[in-house]
Nucleic acid binder design. Sequence first.
DNA 1: GCATTTATTTGCGTATGCATTAAAAGATGC
DNA 2: GCATCTTTTAATGCATACGCAAATAAATGC
Lengths: 231, 231
Amino acid sequence: MQSGDTLKATQNSSPSNAQRAVHALRNMIFSGELSAGSDHLESELAERLGMSRTPIREAALTLESQGLLELRPRKGVRILPVSADDMREIYDVLTELESLAAERAAQMGYGQKDLRDLGQAIVDMDEAIAKQDLEAWAAADERFHRELVRLGGNSRVKAIVAMMSDQVRRARTTTLFIRPLPTKSNEDHRAVFQAIRDGDADLARQRHHKHRQQARDILVGLLEKHKLSGL
Amino acid sequence: MQSGDTLKATQNSSPSNAQRAVHALRNMIFSGELSAGSDHLESELAERLGMSRTPIREAALTLESQGLLELRPRKGVRILPVSADDMREIYDVLTELESLAAERAAQMGYGQKDLRDLGQAIVDMDEAIAKQDLEAWAAADERFHRELVRLGGNSRVKAIVAMMSDQVRRARTTTLFIRPLPTKSNEDHRAVFQAIRDGDADLARQRHHKHRQQARDILVGLLEKHKLSGL
DNA sequence: GCATTTATTTGCGTATGCATTAAAAGATGC
DNA sequence: GCATCTTTTAATGCATACGCAAATAAATGC
């Protein structure tokens, strides 16, 4: 739910219309109000958000570079669907870059309190699983991965992973309630956490790599079964 | 030198002014005509390129998302410098994603002719080294890496690597003529090539990974010595 | 009827003007 | 001289307007 902009602070006192448009459109995409594969005229969106075409266009350009939509000359902006193949690509990128982050995080020699948020995310996931609260689990899972990447200390990795995670989140609506209860998943998280805490970089990388690959196979499998055209 | 846009075809018959601006600005940045760290008003650039502020703004937005520049409200667009730390980050990303590409390429079971361009790039590098033509070597090296990523078959990896390679190219002006003759480098390329040809995915990944890490250490070392502020 | 041409609509790309507001310059007080 | 307040400047963010080209509809020929 954070900005995830390529590298910007975005903590302005007065958010510009263009930035509000970016957030509004993102939310509309994630909520499904703008469904995958649908086309929308710039003027239509402008009216919908109560501003002129100019900031809408700028926002669309930004979101295009994030891979959420596409500007097609006469067809309007098209909300990009996420296919099973896309998801495979995305997960492969996530696997590599997050594993790098895990490795680096382990090398950093972080102390107890540096790793608190990471550990907390794991605890939260356990609780969510106990309560069968999948939404809460997904939120904590996201926190874990975001925190992991933050600890990795590479701002570019952070930006790219945030971008890819956005795409994953869009598919979650579809997949979250079909997939098996992610019990095994949290064992993985814990194992990665321990490797980082112990400063074992190779192990951290290796464990996280495997974890993500398994997640990829599960998700892609689900998406291929439920071949509901798009999203 | 190709577009490297996030995912667009960009093969329009009539390139829009905005797209021409993107290319023009990119070239001006790479050539050093717009030097790292310098600020430029939108109106100034607009006049320079003979168009209005609108397409310039759109181009700037695009290039901002590529990490080449930054739009600062009243200061104009700032051409981002590339520090040694930046380069370390960039190379880490390149290392991971290209190694993935090498692994996947090896798994694909490519035949002789699929790998022709990759092999040719290696031959060209050998020739360039023999002639001590560093520019030609750099061009062939870029071709090798681009081709490798293409063979990997992940469009997102391709887009991200293209983006990161852009940043690397900017530093090359500084580093190319200081670094030792890249003789060893081409041995690495050849080893990677062979692993891919033999379908040994693990080996391909491993070799390329090492290759890129070494390149990173050399480059970052050079940049840290020649701490010429920016670029 | 069907294909092909012509007319019409319409969405986009770009130019332009203006209000806003941050920064620079200047004025004032001490 | 220095700091603070006021004025001026000027770059941006946005709204608006317009021409062009693409897509659609209408018309014409066969």
